[in-house]
Design a protein around this nucleic acid. Structure first.
Lengths: 107, 107
DNA sequence: TCCATATTTCCAATAATATAGAAATAACAG
DNA sequence: CTGTTATTTCTATATTATTGGAAATATGGA
């Protein structure tokens, strides 16, 4: 993962509504949810939600598939795993056991 | 971790210079680095770097300790671990094995 | 004390982002 | 075809963040 790609993903998550949307989709993985249901659960106007879902999708954190007149959004697990790896990669110059008593990273 | 706290941490990381600073500190954990060294490595003007370090510190991602006329900044590992836990918590309604073939989360 | 170095605060210009109303598009049901 | 529901695009406004020069603060050495 590149620095810019990671910044994109982090920026996508760094917003209250979007983070809530993402976590709702993580919670509802792997089936996913439609914007209608998400908007109802989180009380977001459709245009606002659409804007946020697009942002999350462009960041590679969610995917969208058309299902008739609904769109099903799903959390993209490889995306979030890549981000986490990028953040903790190379920690302690390659000796993760230095980070914490039990070397919590890279288990 | 609260939603707002997480947004704060994510926003702190969602910026190219700050992400680079953070990763440099993760790489140089647990000893840490001084702003002088960081600024030299990443080619950042002192006021800009100071602003970014403050942002990271307020987000709980780095800590600062005064050492004579230097300040030593360190990556705060519990902070980043809490953030990661928050992002992947509760995944798949509590059945992480649904997320990926091997149930990669919460190993 | 006086000077050099390290870091931060102040500030103003600039840029990026979030919000939601109104209108547009798309799909299905009758 | 017509009406209904789902979602997105367009648009303007409001809000927030980033940047770095200049000045301020703080430490230690001569």
């Amino acid at each position: 993962m590149e620095n810019k790609e990671a910044v994109n993903a982090l920026a996508a998550l760094a917003q209250e509504s979007r983070l809530a949307v993402f976590r709702l989709l993580v919670h509802n993985a792997p089936e996913g949810l439609t914007p209608g249901v998400i908007g109802e659960q989180l009380d977001l106007p459709a245009p606002t939600l659409s804007f946020h879902l697009k942002t999350l999708a462009q960041a590679g954190l969610v995917t969208a598939v058309q299902e008739g007149r609904y769109v099903r959004y799903r959390a993209e697990m490889p995306g979030i795993n890549a981000l986490i790896a990028f953040l903790t990669d190379d920690c302690c110059g390659g000796n993760p056991q230095l980070c914490s008593p039990k070397g919590k990273f890279h288990e």
